[in-house]
Amino acid sequence: MRALIVVAHPLEESFTHAAAARVKATLERRGLAVDLIDLYADNFDPRLTAAERRAYFTAPHDYSAVAGYADRLRLAQKLVLVFPQWWFDAPAILKGFFDRVLAPGLAFTHAPGGGLTPLLTQIDALWVVSSTGAPWWAARLVMGDPVRRQIARGVKPWICPKATFRMLTLHNMDRFTPAKGSVFLDRLEQAFQRF
Rank of each mutant, 00 (worst) to 15 (best):
W86T: 07
H110M: 05
L126H: 01
V155D: 05
W86M: 10
P118G: 06
R153V: 07
T117D: 04
G96P: 11
V66H: 07
V66W: 06
F97R: 02
D145N: 11
R148N: 13
L141T: 14
G105K: 09
T132A: 04
R153Y: 14
P161I: 03
P112E: 14
V82W: 06
A65M: 08
G96H: 08
W136E: 14
F83R: 05
F88V: 05
H61G: 06
G114C: 01
W137I: 11
D89F: 08
G115R: 08
W137A: 00
L126T: 03
M143V: 13
V155P: 11
L79S: 04
L168D: 10
A59D: 13
M143K: 14
H110C: 00
P146Y: 00
L81H: 14
R148P: 00
G114S: 07
V155L: 12
G105E: 11
P157S: 02
P84Y: 01
P112V: 05
L116R: 15
V101L: 01
A138H: 15
G154C: 10
R100W: 01
R74E: 05
P118S: 04
C160M: 04
I93Y: 00
R153F: 13
A138Y: 11
L120C: 10
L141M: 12
L106H: 10
H110K: 03
L141D: 10
G115V: 06
T117H: 11
I123C: 04
V155H: 02
S130G: 15
G114T: 06
L168W: 09
D62E: 08
W137Q: 03
R153P: 12
A70L: 10
P84Q: 07
D145K: 08
D62T: 05
G133C: 02
R166Y: 02
G105C: 12
V82M: 02
P146G: 07
D62R: 07
A103Y: 00
V101F: 10
L79C: 12
L116S: 10
L75D: 15
W137E: 12
L106N: 02
D145M: 01
D62H: 13
R140E: 04
F98P: 15
G154T: 09
W127T: 08
L119K: 13
I151S: 02
A67Y: 01
Y63W: 13
Q150C: 09
R149N: 09
A103L: 03
P104M: 00
F83A: 12
L120E: 07
A152H: 14
D145T: 12
R149E: 03
S130W: 07
R148T: 09
V66I: 12
V101Q: 04
T132H: 02
I159P: 14
R140N: 03
P157V: 09
L79I: 09
W136T: 11
A134L: 00
V80R: 01
L94M: 09
